[in-house]
Design a protein around this nucleic acid. Structure first.
Lengths: 197, 197
DNA sequence: AATAGAAACGGACTGCAGTCCGTTTGGACC
DNA sequence: GGTCCAAACGGACTGCAGTCCGTTTCTATT
């Protein structure tokens, strides 16, 4: 979890000063450690700043807000997932027939979401719909629907299939509604088949 | 917006002391006025307490949290909507064929949600899935799916149809994705027809 | 190596949610 | 009307997110 920056696509704007880069690293590591040692709730901006040995203002300049910091942590930890969708082994990765890929995608997304549940909640608005992985997921589903020769507003259908995989919905189903993960998975599979039919 | 309590179902627990009831009224009115005169953001617990002429602690004892207060305001203002689904004129109310009712329900829900968008956001977790209206909506959709002779896990399908009508999704579509309300409506209608088919 | 100015830094400060606890009050029972 | 106590009250207090601005540090340029 570190080293070689994965997608340094940003080459145009001012470029980042070396101390700024060092501090960002330190802050992300500090936040990550706080989560490991305690919990997401214990990640206060003051605590992160202190642990990283920088001032509080610095944390806000780097990440805008607590939600922004959480989103940054999420992006980092979900990059591996994204990679396995793009180029991992089938059925999640390329190679399997589109319907199988789509179902595998849903299951995998569900698990990843639940794994990072606390972080996603803490990222609030940024965590639910704004960070990069969400856009990627929509694009991928849209693509698979195209492969399946589905007609209609694929963008909308992709959103509609993704919506029930979001944290508030999943937690409601697994919590209050007392459903098992298997039931939820089966429900989603059924939904997909109806949409694709 | 006041008087005759709508559903005083609660008759078992301790019952409420008269000063407590009076204060709840005053607090809801104060919050409501603050929203009208300024905005949802201006509804701070201190401001509400001061305007209602009570101490801050009282606000929290009544509503638990700021989100709880927002949810209370929501429940109150969405009660009329709920009534029009149960016993209003068709196609939203009873009388129209089930598919028409279902589509009308979605459109109506979409509009109501957008109308109360700021409040729903402010109610956070409580606003998205916990307050009474959400449970009612799920039940109603489930019922209509039954009428339409849909087979399968109707509870799941209801959730799946409701999920894309939630605020974060709608705002993403109308905002970033630059879709019109009509497109979104059409997308949802298509989704419903596929599920029902 | 010296210089300048843009960018980054740090930490005191503000505003708000939520808690705590000593005080007051409604109303049930005598 | 008087007594009692559970429930309600109020506001000082705590902790955290987010802002502001005077100070320090990079780095491009000469």
């Amino acid at each position: 979890m570190d080293a070689t920056r994965l997608l340094p696509l940003a080459g145009e704007p001012p470029a980042e000063r070396s101390d700024a880069a060092r501090n960002r690293e330190a802050l992300l590591r500090a936040a990550s450690e706080l989560i490991d040692h305690c919990s997401v709730e214990s990640v206060t901006m003051d605590a992160v700043a202190q642990r990283a040995g920088v001032g509080k203002g610095t944390v806000f300049r780097r990440f805008e807000s607590r939600e922004g910091l959480m989103a940054a942590l999420l992006d980092h930890s979900e990059t591996t997932w994204q990679a396995s969708v793009i180029s991992g082994p089938p059925p999640l990765g390329p190679g399997a027939p589109p319907l199988e890929r789509l179902l595998a995608f849903g299951h995998s997304r569900m698990e990843t979401t639940l794994t990072h549940a606390a972080l996603i909640r803490a990222a609030g608005h940024a965590g639910t719909r704004a960070y990069a992985v969400a856009a990627f997921a929509a694009m991928h589903v849209r693509y698979l629907l195209g492969q399946l020769d589905v007609h209609g507003d694929l963008g909308y259908l992709a959103t509609a299939l993704l919506a029930p995989l979001e944290i508030p919905v999943l937690e409601q189903q697994l919590g209050q509604e007392r459903r098992s993960l298997d039931e939820v998975r089966a429900g989603w599979d059924d939904l997909v088949r109806r949409v694709v039919a």
